[in-house]
């Protein structure tokens, strides 16, 4: 895709619709601009020059859930934040994906106590868990690429079912 067009003046490329849809979804996946705690700073670092997430078509962070495809839960989710997080997830249009960034979002991390959800998967469904406290920007980028792989493996008939 794309490459073939540059190689010669073919004008026409044949592929499956499935590949086409999945390819377009991975290459313009807009994350939601939504930081909770420490991991949000590393998420900003991943956007900043040194790591530069725009190499993966993801430089555009949308502040509105209505315009975003990917929710990066960057940080610990408290009991007060849980309902808000759920509301934001419900407001995102389908198809949508969730990355639980960091130990707190994945499993509660060091905060095993009354105030924190022991894993954001008690609130929203999670596609990819990124380990680390906080994860390095490279780890986040790897998590995002893992989501891309997951998207590329999607089948049209599964999408129709859900």
């Amino acid at each position: 895709m794309g490459v073939e067009q540059k190689l010669g003046n073919m004008g026409v490329v044949t592929t499956t619709l499935e590949n086409m849809v999945n390819w377009s979804r991975t290459n313009a996946m807009w994350p939601m601009l939504f930081g909770l705690a420490c991991c949000a700073i590393e998420m900003m670092s991943a956007q900043a020059p040194h790591y530069d997430m725009s190499r993966f078509g993801m430089e555009l962070m949308r502040a509105s859930p209505r315009q975003s495809d990917l929710m990066i839960v960057a940080g610990r989710v408290s009991k007060k934040m849980g309902p808000v997080l759920r509301r934001l997830y419900d407001q995102m249009p389908e198809p949508k994906w969730v990355i639980a960034m960091g130990d707190c979002a994945s499993c509660g991390g060091v905060f095993n106590n009354y105030a924190i959800y022991q894993g954001v998967d008690e609130v929203v469904p999670v596609d990819v868990y990124v380990a680390g406290c906080p994860p390095r920007p490279e780890a986040l980028i790897h998590g995002v690429l893992t989501v891309h792989e997951k998207v590329k493996a999607q089948k049209l008939k599964d999408l129709a079912k859900s």
């Binding site: 909770l36 705690a37 940080g75 610990r76 408290s78 009991k79 007060k80 934040m81 808000v84 060091v110 905060f111 095993n112 106590n113 009354y114 105030a115 924190i116």
Partner: peptide
Amino acid sequence: VGFLHTGIEKN
């Protein structure tokens, strides 16, 4: 405030 209350003191 309180959306990030983590219970650090108790922990």
